[in-house]
Write a protein that binds this DNA or RNA. Structure first.
Length: 443
RNA sequence: GUGGUUUUAGCUCAGUUGGCAGAGCAUCGGAUUGUGGUUCCGAGUGUCGUGGGUUCGAGCCCCACAUUCCACCCCA
């Protein structure tokens, strides 16, 4: 019985053109990662449920894909699940391989992750993250370099972005000074929505979540913070001067900004905006220091990159005292942004340089020998496999965006040449193997 | 998990109060027995998302499920 094939909700097929573009994204990100000395690892698609559970908050647990073993009954708790992000598997990896790693350890990882979320704009159930993390150091140089890497990546893509910067210690300090230390999660998730729902609704939500009227009032100056990063820091420092944790956060942020500014030159791109944003919270509750988020300025889309510092993620797996910091580029959202802004360079069309189109079996064999010679020079070459009509063969070259057709008939075989046709201009000339190789190598 | 939306030819989509299933593009063939992308002529294609129900009769009305997209929650 023929049934209509389909793929699971929130997943996608990638066709050749899309893959060329995706590879352009991965290659660009990867080259920046390597520029800063990061090395690649991969981890399995599935992890033990015990590794995943409880790392992403209540909501996160619900969004985990569970893997049902064939032997398990429907009601049993599955022991394996698909990874939800790359950071937690990385922490697990570090703990398991600690004896073989040199710290500080810089790694990058480009792999798909899965979330059983409801799909919508820029949200898929299977998507790629490009993670870059360094563990085993709490140096703020790392935060600074991550910021510079974000700047470099988006500069290469030509996407104008704003990078928002916050610090969990500052958020903790705020909760402390308004006397609601234990409500830090409620406070952060509420003020995270400031942009979207406005100050009045945020305050309403804070009251609903059980904050006192007084605490909400004391929060207001923080919410309304304006001015340059330096001015913001000044105001935050004044507000938090009674909180040791809060002041630590202020110092960290000040140092990161200072280091960042110290490396900037006039040549740096001004399209990149780095701003302190106290309303930036980020849901993952393992963050303890800096937190980052990047949004495209010219496209309506959720964050396209995010990350932060986590002081004790490996502690959960029995290896305390290892601080890490990292960020994750959302490849699929970047793809959507590049598509919407039409920013793909022309060369992202990965294709064949030359197609041999032939008039018969003898010509085809002749073409195969020529093709081998070209391939030895590293030129992407195809021989049309059937003895079809020339029209058909030329259409094939055209439809696949192949730049040159090398036509082989009796005349060409006699003179030991091919008729080389430029598919864009329509110009053609009879050329020797040497001339053909030269022409194609120059491309 | 909540609310709405979409699904008809390979693709994008029309389809009237319930009455014979349509267009453009793409594909294939020909005009052109050694030349594609432009032109002209011709042709093919459908379990109308799936399963039930109402009706003399359902692409259209009702129910369930799947799916698309959007918003909320949350997030890359």
């Amino acid at each position: 019985m023929a049934q209509k094939p389909s793929i699971p909700k929130g997943t996608r097929d990638f066709s050749p053109l899309e893959m060329s573009r995706r590879n352009y994204i991965f290659d660009t990100i990867r080259s920046v990662f390597r520029l800063y000395g990061y090395r690649q690892i991969e981890t399995p698609s599935m992890e033990q449920m015990s590794t995943l559970m409880g790392k992403y908050g209540e909501e996160g647990d619900k969004l985990l894909f569970r893997i049902q073993n064939s032997g398990e009954k429907a009601g049993e708790a599955p022991e394996k699940g698909l990874r939800y992000d790359l950071t937690v598997p990385f922490a697990r990896y570090v703990v398991q391989h600690r004896e073989e790693l040199q710290f500080p350890f810089r790694r990058y990882q480009i792999q798909p992750v899965w979330r059983a979320d409801r799909p919508q704009k820029g949200r898929y159930r299977e998507f790629y993250q490009c993670d870059v993390d360094v563990v085993g150091t709490d140096s703020l140089v790392c935060e600074t370099e991550l910021i510079k890497m974000v700047e470099e990546v988006y500069s290469r893509f030509g996407i104008r972005v704003s990078m928002h910067l916050n610090n969990r210690k500052i958020l903790a300090g705020i909760a402390e000074v308004i006397g609601e230390e234990d409500k830090i999660t409620d406070i952060t998730t509420a003020i995270d929505k400031l942009d979207k729902i406005g100050a009045d609704n945020v305050n309403k939500e804070l009251l609903e979540r059980g904050l006192s009227r007084e605490a909400v009032d004391r929060l207001q100056p923080i919410l309304r913070l304006e001015g340059s990063n330096e001015q913001k820091l000044q105001q935050i420092a004044e507000t938090l001067n009674q909180s040791e944790t809060g002041m630590k956060g202020v110092e960290e942020m000040r140092e990161v900004l200072r280091l960042y500014e110290s490396t900037r030159t006039a040549a740096d791109n001004n399209a990149f905006r780095l701003e302190i944003d106290l309303t930036l919270a980020r849901g993952l509750n393992y963050y303890t220091g800096a937190i980052f988020e990047v949004k495209a300025l010219d496209v309506q889309m959720g964050s396209i990159t995010g990350g932060g510092r986590y002081d004790n993620l490996t502690g959960i797996f029995g290896m305390p005292g290892v601080s890490g910091v990292g960020i994750s580029f959302g490849a699929d959202r970047i793809y959507d942004v590049l598509t919407e802004l039409n920013l793909y360079p022309a060369y992202t069309l990965e294709t064949t340089a030359v197609l041999f189109a032939t008039f018969g079996e003898k010509e085809r064999e002749y073409a195969m020998q020529w093709a081998d010679s070209l391939r030895r020079q590293g030129i992407n070459t195809e021989v049309y496999p059937d003895c079809s009509k020339m029209k058909k063969q030329m259409s094939y070259a055209d439809a696949n965006g192949i730049e040159y057709a090398a036509i082989v008939g009796g005349n060409e075989m006699e003179t030991n040449t091919v008729m080389l046709k430029n598919m864009q201009t329509g110009e053609q000339q009879q050329v020797s193997l040497e001339m053909l190789t030269q022409t194609l190598i120059q491309k």
